[in-house]
Nucleic acid binder design. Structure first.
Lengths: 344, 344
DNA sequence: TTGTACGCGTTATCAA
DNA sequence: TTGATAACGCGTACAA
């Protein structure tokens, strides 16, 4: 790797001059030297050493994308289409802005804090399902943070946090409220709620479900109604098989993700229970599987790409000094009617 | 951020001593000082500045994961389950080894070379569908490279390359040969080949298809037989719709991915053409969609997780100085019989 | 056993 | 308009 110092000496100028040319501070340098240096830089394919630059400027040009997931143990989380698509959106926004994306996955707040400070990361995007962990990180990090789908309560945030932050989310509770209302309007009364756990977004969505059922005067399933407690994609099939028994006591099931909806449909079909003839299903996300499922899924669409783009945009404006009072950005959702719900 | 220098001065020792303790070179330090320093390090939560460390040691602890994809323009490549799962496998192997993963996506070899040298990345894993681009990078990079599914021909590689490298792949040609033979053994004679393009693995797979058809004395589709030329996941549906016409002239279709198989099945079903009654379909990968598809997909299973793990393992042993003569590692595949193929 | 001093590549300050 | 020179934080050869 060729260095500024080498260039300076072979060109008979100082490192300062070379550096100035590199950074376009050309009004402080004579046109001839500018040309001379520029030509030579191109000739030798000069590439700055970013470590040295970061050291001198006390920054990193790295945006850390941190995934802190509940019970992340040996599961390939990228099998989750939601996570994958989000990462993809983040990557493109980050590199478009001239930053670099470093991915870090851990469910241990201390490890995350460690990572952040070693690399002197300029900002982080955190996808943290566990509020406590997210809070702990934000207490120890003085630079900008964007949370995605992390429902740390507002007061606690502002009280305990050193850094500016924003939280990007969708109107989870309201979206589910409307979805359940939709089912009710179609004549359903016995409606189940299917989630993978009761943390983060799922908790909020459960509230929406509860409220809709309450408002209609129907009996809601309790927190243990239908939960597919499995983070292992390889054993999901058996998990869902067991759920079919519970599910068939209802006329409709709201599912917290399209993935779980499709898994449930498949398990049901294997037992001869047909969707939507015997039971109606509604999903969440509107990912590729929703369109390809048979029947095609009626589901709630959220714009994952937008989520990622907004996250990076907010982060960058914080990095660039636009002061933020900590805020929540709430994105909309939309019910997409397809073929998995029928009137009864 | 607290520095070694500060620690040294408040403790009344030299930076060397602190550094030695940090690196466990304790036999050169008295037990008391070791304890004193260790305690203090813990107390102040010392975290090394990795930029400074890298600068001093001329390394980075970064493994670059580089995605160079044919016609990558504004497409969220993470929607491809193959890519996502691979990234996930790479991430966990990399962080297990104490390295950090930096993701870089570009189809421009010069940009990639630039990226690699600015960050002084210790090694790269390249998923490059375009041979030329991969070659160009390897010519300019003197550190270890692992290619995944990049079928740069061997001779050219060893002649033009400065760095040690390994290529990790599966027996694409053979796998498809067997799959087509399987279709033939089930009575099929008019068999089509469906791919997204004719680059990289698809090219090899096409060879396997051709050979199997030739050996059986059947007429193969030409290179333009059935190709779903679309990298945009949002317009795929219409692309596949157009393909149904071609496809229905065959009794079986070999598809280069489960994703394309499922898309095709859906498009066919919409036109009232049933799988496997009217036409048999065979996929590739055995991802989640294969099991959930109806009918469940008969497909060729490859172990993506293993691919990722082997890639990182090879890379690390190169980084750690185990000298490699450039080599190919070929992983096996397995035909999984499900319900999308019938006898005729 | 401990400490001094220099180098890593870059940027920034200040003087010439 | 240009150029020394210090500083960033760490590792290490060498000296004490």
């Amino acid at each position: 790797m060729i260095t500024i110092k080498e260039i300076a000496s072979t060109l008979g100028v100082s490192t300062t001059t070379v550096s100035n040319v590199i950074h376009g501070k050309t009004k402080e340098v004579s046109p001839q030297t500018v040309e001379k240096v520029k030509d030579y830089l191109r000739e030798v394919h000069y590439v700055p050493n970013i470590n040295a630059r970061n050291l001198a400027q006390n920054r990193s040009k790295i945006i850390g994308v941190v995934l802190m997931l509940y019970a992340y143990n040996d599961v390939n989380i990228f099998k989750d289409p939601f996570v994958s698509e989000l990462i993809g959106a983040l990557e493109s926004s980050i590199s478009d802005a001239g930053y670099f994306m470093m991915l870090y996955i851990s469910d241990d707040a201390d490890q995350v804090i460690n990572y952040i400070s070693t690399w002197n990361v300029d900002g982080i995007v955190m996808f943290a399902i566990n509020d406590e962990a997210g809070l702990k990180v934000s207490r120890h990090y003085k630079k900008p943070i964007v949370f995605i789908d992390s429902y740390v309560e507002n007061e606690r945030k502002s009280r305990n946090t050193k850094a500016p932050f924003v939280n990007i989310a969708i109107n989870d509770e309201e979206a589910v409220y409307e979805a359940v209302q939709y089912l009710i309007s179609r004549g359903h009364k016995k409606i189940a709620f299917l989630s993978r756990n009761m943390m983060g977004t799922d908790k909020l969505r459960y509230r929406g479900y509860l409220r809709a059922m309450d408002d209609a005067g129907f009996k809601a399933g309790d927190e243990d109604a239908i939960i597919a407690r499995s983070n292992n994609y390889d054993e999901t099939e058996s998990v869902y098989e067991k759920l079919t028994g519970k599910a068939s006591r209802y006329t409709a099931v709201f599912c917290c993700s399209d993935t779980s909806a499709v898994l449930l449909i498949n398990a049901l079909e294997k037992k001869g229970i047909h969707v939507p003839e015997d039971i109606s299903i509604i999903g969440f996300d509107d990912n590729a599987a929703a369109q390809l499922s048979r029947p095609a899924l009626t589901t709630i669409r959220q714009d994952i790409n937008l989520k990622g783009k907004k996250a990076v945009k907010s982060l960058l404006s914080m990095i660039n000094g636009t002061v933020f009072t900590s805020q929540n950005i709430v994105l909309g959702t939309k019910l997409i009617e397809r073929g998995s719900v029928r009137d009864i």
